[in-house]
Amino acid sequence: MAEVNQVSPPRSNRRNFLWILFQWILQGFFAIWLRYQSRGKENLPAKGGGLLISNHQSFLDPLLICLPLTRPVSFMARDSLFRIPILGPFMRYEFVIPINRRTTSSQSFRAAIENIENGNYVGIFPEGTRTTDGSVERFKPGFLALLKRTDIAIYPIGIAGADRALPRGAYFLRPRSVRVVFGEPISAELIREYCERGAQKALLELTHQRVISCQQQAESWLNPDLTS
């Protein structure tokens, strides 16, 4: 089977008509079927690039993150997803950036950097795969390479409930509640300090803990009786 090596070009920071229509439909459907709610989106900048880092619970996650936003997000996703009928063409249309998890893709990182420099959001799930139990797994450090070549903030995001709405191996969306929390950013200045000190491991751990905090907030919001 042929490898996917086409990298999406930097996208405009304006929504296209297809996504606006799709977003409008999903907002109504998810509000009813998933009782979807989010908070903290004011922590994201109104303009300028940014790196969105989230935990990964299901294939729904990119939609759950984008749903309340008025600006587009170019997610980095494994190249094998581009071979799926309907999903693949849609991902290309929405400028999702394919990445081969077995090799380092300089093309993918260049596309991500260009998107950020053009004032767009880039979204990454550093766990590399969906969780099996809802917890936030260890982060892979690949995204740190973007921070060395750009001057941007990290925006941590926590998702809760998506693994119950669409668990691994499921083919149908279950009526389970979902919450998304957009946390306070890790500033570009703080990131620069870590990078200048060569403290990449500490920066990776800080990012991991910020995402865990957001996920725990989302879980507490979702199940207040269990966390009180």
Results as ranks from 00 to 15, higher is better:
M1P: 09
A2H: 03
E3I: 07
V7S: 11
P9I: 08
R11Q: 12
R14Y: 13
R14W: 12
F22M: 10
Q23E: 06
L26R: 06
G28Q: 04
R35P: 01
R35A: 10
Y36F: 12
Q37H: 08
N43T: 03
N43S: 05
G50A: 15
L51G: 06
L52S: 01
I53H: 01
S54L: 07
N55C: 02
S58G: 05
F59N: 08
L64D: 04
L67Y: 10
P68R: 05
R71A: 08
F75Y: 13
F75K: 04
M76F: 06
M76L: 15
I86N: 02
R92A: 05
E94D: 04
E94G: 05
N100P: 04
S105A: 03
S106C: 00
R110F: 11
P126K: 09
T129N: 12
R138Y: 05
R138P: 00
K140R: 15
G142D: 14
G142K: 12
L144C: 01
A145E: 11
A145S: 14
K148V: 00
R149Q: 15
D151N: 15
A160H: 03
A162Y: 06
R168M: 07
L173Q: 11
R174K: 15
P175D: 02
S177C: 06
R179Y: 02
V181S: 06
F182P: 04
A188S: 15
A188R: 05
E189C: 06
I191G: 02
R192K: 10
E193C: 08
C195T: 09
Q200M: 11
A202N: 12
H208V: 05
Q216K: 13
S220M: 09
W221R: 06
W221G: 07
P224W: 12
